[in-house]
Nucleic acid binder design. Structure first.
Lengths: 150, 150
DNA sequence: TATTGTTATACTCTATAACTATA
DNA sequence: TATAGTTATAGAGTATAACAATA
């Protein structure tokens, strides 16, 4: 019950799969985004603020943080202002090059970060998979996450 | 070379996998988000505008679109204003209930939507997988995408 | 002169609340 | 009165450009 085309039906199928996977990844990404927004809102944080906090497991110069967040350096000033105003991070000048200011989590910031990370990692997004399926998904996602340019 | 703990080592491993998968999903989601932002910027659209366009494969009342975008209805007014100003959508009042206005893609909006969808679907995110791996990933993502509340 | 971070500006997204038109 | 969409408002994210301090 299957009319085979005259050229590379297997490739066509692979292409179809690729398209569908991209669409699925998009859906899952949207859902992850939504769950993250909901998560950080419980800490009265916006998504960029929450992402900044997650990136600050270790102290990080503001410019480098801008790169990690894929945004202009000038934005980090405002984000850092708001996090600093709430006592979650502090600016610390680099003794060697005083132009550089690193953002450092305060004890309170560390607690918030730990809670957010814990919540994100226990997110319900992949409930409904068996342990074996999760292991397989893990392997495939590692490949996906590592492929291409960051 | 493996000291087994006294209680459910398999469950512990499953839990570890779940945590790692959540982290990986987060990374892949971030990357997908970034690729999408880059994609729609080539059309001089913002991510919410691009997402709105993707949702408008079929005409859709503004309130329903707000639900799909997970935002307040008042935001859709502005997004629709900007898309309409650029000739990508039009508002069409429902003859049966004239409070309802559906957003409808213009021919130009359909072309833009088609291009964006094509670009998203051919995104390089899952390059580096074999056809068999893609098929497996597809199945698992279907489960993930369908599990839990939307 | 080049780099790091800041400030000024403008635009968009977002939620809340008050409003209009329709039902 | 209830609902769909709008408007007003305020806060936040974003990029660009001009700026200060430091190198």
């Amino acid at each position: 019950m299957c009319f085979v085309t005259t050229r590379e039906p297997a490739d066509d199928q692979a292409l179809q799969d690729a398209h569908e996977i991209a669409g699925l990844l998009f859906r899952v990404a949207e859902r992850t985004r939504h769950v993250f927004e909901f998560t950080v809102r419980r800490f009265e944080l916006t998504p960029p603020q929450g992402r900044a906090l997650l990136e600050l497991e270790r102290p990080c110069p503001m410019g480098s943080l801008a790169e990690r967040l894929h945004c202009d350096a000038s934005n980090v000033t405002g984000i850092a202002d708001r996090l600093e105003a709430r006592g979650l991070v502090s600016r610390e000048a680099d003794p060697a090059d005083r132009r550089i200011k690193a953002l450092v989590l305060t004890p309170r910031g560390r607690r918030a970060r730990r809670e957010i990370e814990r919540t994100v990692r226990s997110s319900p997004v992949m409930a409904g998979l068996t342990p074996a399926e999760r292991a397989t998904l893990r392997e495939l996602l590692v490949k996906v996450a590592d492929s291409g340019q960051p």
